[in-house]
Amino acid sequence: MTSVTRTSQLRGANAELSGLAAPGRVALSATPPASAMTKLLQWLLGVSLLGAVWALVTFDLLGLSLPRTYREVAWPMPVYLLVSFGCYSLATVGYRVAIFNDCDEAAKELQEQIKEAKEDLRKKGLKM
């Protein structure tokens, strides 16, 4: 990384000039590799893979003459998956809302510290 030298430049006499204002210059800094595939593409890939497997089994596209039960199980599978994901989501969000901490103590502590701070600041000569 060239960042070390950049930081020391920033600290130098010319800090004002060598800042971030010029995107062209900053682009020189070392860029770690970014993952190539967007989340959208990852999802599309995953869904189409699953869909392909589902279609293969359900419609027996490869002519494997799979037992009937395979097809019967596979056919409504997307609906099952959707419903169970929905249930999982609802349960998770509901649970997390339920256990969301109410920080009453923190609020009380803050109120006391505010009082203390105001007093101290007044003593130090602050006009609010």
Binding site: V93, V97, F100, N101, D102, D104, A107
Partner: peptide
Amino acid sequence: GGVYGWDLRRKL
């Protein structure tokens, strides 16, 4: 971690 001063709607 947590919050103070949020109602159920906000938490949800």
